[in-house]
Amino acid sequence: MAKKIALISEECVACGSCLKACPLQAISIFKGSHAIIDATKCVGCGKCQRVCPASVITITERKES
């Protein structure tokens, strides 16, 4: 299982830049409000973080459940 995951803060503007950047299609826009990450798909590669114009994405260590 991937050890890292992307987290999106509430300041997301839902522009959708991250959608195209994600190689695993792990991101979607929730009802035009903000981006959400599918934790089962995200590997924390950081591509979304690099393109996010609002800089609201952080890559963190995944909490083991």
């Binding site: 522009c15 830049s17 114009p53 800089s55």
Partner: peptide, 15 residues
């Protein structure tokens, strides 16, 4: 100055 789609952050239509 910033990232390519920085306009999207304050685009009035987007807001």
């Amino acid at each position: 100055l910033y990232k390519p789609r920085s306009w999207c952050v304050y685009c009035p239509m987007g807001t």
